[in-house]
């Protein structure tokens, strides 16, 4: 009996120590590369070595889950290249993409919002210097409405409206006269109208969430084409334009910019990572 007790204790001790060993081994391997890339990139950026900083932050973006601070610093690294006079085509767009990513991950990030506004301002200034329109497309109403709330919120609103109409129906059934009956008479049509309005918005928001991705144009400008690559007339999309990305056809990608739709080469767009 004493032998079995000893064996059990030894087994338990081994398991516990193994567990600790596994956790201890896992933790640095999972965390270190992300921290290292971020740290190296930040150090390089502080020293003014923006090329190394860009490489490190891009490596971070390739492999690690997104983090708003890493995206923000990536945006600053591209801006540093612009400010140092080593700008390459699309740097403002790449900076804008990184800052948009930071804002999507942390919507209340004021620094990122300010930096993004400066980038958009610079793009607009450059366009206006070339005699081009600053405003290419206005946002479309359906997207504005759908983006007001999340998909789940629209679903809950529609369900609540349905419940509201049903409650009105109940009041009308139980009370044949009086204030409650009048409330029932009002609730039923109001609830029905709201349910009918919110349901398509829910489905629209769901389609947007599942089938569309956010992206940013990272070339100085891009002309929209049709599915066969034939250029459409109209102003080209500006650098740093926030796009709604859809289907892919060969090397072309369907994009929507405000109320304008078309196809552009997928290499001209950076897809934003939100996870």
């Amino acid at each position: 009996m004493r032998f079995f007790d000893g064996m059990a204790a030894a087994l338990l001790a081994t398991l516990v120590s193994l567990s600790f060993a596994v956790f201890a081994a896992d933790a640095p391997e999972d965390m270190a590369p992300a921290q290292q890339n971020f740290q190296k990139g930040s150090d390089a950026l502080i020293l003014g070595n923006y090329e190394e900083a860009i490489a490190q932050f891009e490596l971070y973006a390739d492999g690690q889950p997104s983090h708003p601070d890493a995206s923000y610093n990536r945006g600053l690294a591209y801006l540093a290249r612009v400010r140092a006079g080593g700008e390459r085509d699309g740097d403002l767009g790449r900076a804008s993409a990184a800052l948009e990513e930071a804002l999507l991950l942390r919507p209340g990030d004021r620094d990122a919002a300010h930096a993004r506004a400066l980038v958009h301002g610079e793009v607009a200034r450059r366009r206006s210097r070339r005699g081009k329109d600053v405003l290419i497309a206005r946002p479309s109403l359906d997207r504005e409405i759908m983006n007001l709330l999340s998909e789940r919120s629209w679903a809950i609103l529609a369900i609540f409206a349905s419940f509201f109409a049903s409650f009105g129906w109940l009041l009308r059934l139980l009370r044949k006269q009086g204030a409650w009956q009048l409330a029932g008479v009002i609730f039923v049509p109001l609830g029905l109208i709201a349910a009918v309005a919110f349901t398509p918005i829910y489905f629209g928001a769901r389609t947007l969430r599942l089938e569309r991705r956010p992206g940013v144009l990272v070339v100085p400008e891009a002309h929209l084409t049709d599915r066969d690559g034939v250029a459409q007339s109209g102003e080209p999309l500006p650098e740093g334009a926030f796009l709604e990305l859809g289907d892919r056809h060969g090397r072309l990608l369907h994009v929507r910019y405000g109320s304008v739709e078309g196809w552009i080469p997928s290499s001209t767009v950076r897809t934003l990572r939100l996870r």
Binding site: D111, H114, L118, R125
Partner: peptide
């Protein structure tokens, strides 16, 4: 134009 950008 980016002088007012916040630090890294």
């Amino acid at each position: 134009p980016f002088v007012t950008v916040a630090p890294i």
